[in-house]
């Protein structure tokens, strides 16, 4: 992840804070000075190098769902502290800090909406909330999103952005991988389409569970995608990593995603896919 960190904007919740004047910003990838209004109009994508700035879950809701409207469910689920985990901070304090900084309750927002009038169960993650990590709440909300798809017999769309399972909930976080994936087995058998959208970054426990299990998997350009962390791989093999390793383009090349999609085209592409992949009776 370090390789990418240098090139990218930091936490999404800091996006606006970094721009006190609110007029101009610099693309962290190519260095281009961009007028913020232009950037916003261009879906937070650099007009010069197509670098996709990290955006908030609310931005994706606005971008993809009709009238930018999500009928939110399970917004009242919040993290407990089953392990009484403490490092430099107590885990509940870490969560409280994230709630304060992001204005969100957890690393995922879920609900129902429509895409070109087609109803969907929709979930979108927030990397800014404890690294988009999956603990019991994220696992539960994904599980309920899958169940809403099953119940209402509507397609499932999940936009992922996550560093993986949340360490602070130990084995409970690990088991969320099993929980979400096992429910996806039902969706699979019932022939209800699931489109997984990977954004920067989607790695580790989330990549190794529901994010990899879409009938169709789409990625935004130049996102960091993979299983193991780059620091760990570097330490294990004792050499530098090839250029472009674990990027969306790398994933496409190796056959693990269907296509890369510019953010401006996401809605159109998802909508078109849904015209082909209809829930089967």
């Amino acid at each position: 992840m370090e390789l990418f960190k240098k090139n990218q904007n930091s936490q999404p919740d800091q996006r606006k804070k970094e721009l006190p004047d609110g007029l101009w910003t610099k693309c962290n990838n190519c260095g281009e000075i961009i007028y913020i209004k232009e950037l916003e109009k261009n879906f937070w994508v650099c007009h010069k190098c197509d670098f996709h700035f990290r955006i908030l879950s609310s931005d994706y809701i606005g971008l993809i769902l009709d009238e930018g409207k999500l009928d939110e469910y399970d917004g009242n689920l919040i993290s407990a502290d089953p392990l009484e985990f403490k490092d430099s901070k107590r885990y509940p304090d870490r969560v409280k800090g994230a709630i304060k900084n992001t204005g969100l309750k957890e690393a995922i927002v879920c609900g129902c909406g429509t895409i070109d009038t087609k109803p969907v169960s929709f979930a979108v993650m927030n990397f800014g909330f404890v690294g988009g990590s999956m603990g019991s709440v994220v696992g539960e909300k994904v599980a309920r999103s899958i169940e809403r798809s099953l119940e209402k017999r509507i397609p499932l769309i999940i936009i992922s952005a996550s560093g993986g399972a949340r360490m602070q909930e130990g084995i409970l976080s690990l088991m969320q991988m099993a929980k979400t994936s096992s429910l996806l087995a039902l969706l699979y058998d019932q022939k209800i389409p699931y489109i997984s959208v990977l954004t920067n970054p989607t790695t580790a426990g989330v990549m190794a569970s529901y994010a990899s299990l879409g009938d169709i998997i789409i990625a935004e350009p130049q996102a960091l995608l993979g299983f193991a962390g780059q620091r760990v791989i570097k330490q294990t093999i004792g050499q530098d990593l090839p250029k472009g390793f674990q990027s969306s383009e790398f994933f496409l090349e190796h056959g693990f995603i269907d296509f890369i999609c510019h953010r401006r085209d996401l809605k159109k592409q998802i909508s078109s896919l849904l015209n082909y992949l209809k829930v089967q009776d």
């Binding site: 991988m177 096992s182 996806l184 087995a185 190794a208 990899s212 993979g226 190796h254 056959g255 693990f256």
Partner: peptide, 14 residues
């Protein structure tokens, strides 16, 4: 990673 570690694990879980 090239051969899809994440995909292989995810698929097994399902």
């Amino acid at each position: 990673e090239e051969r899809g570690q994440a995909e292989a694990i995810a698929r097994n879980l399902r």
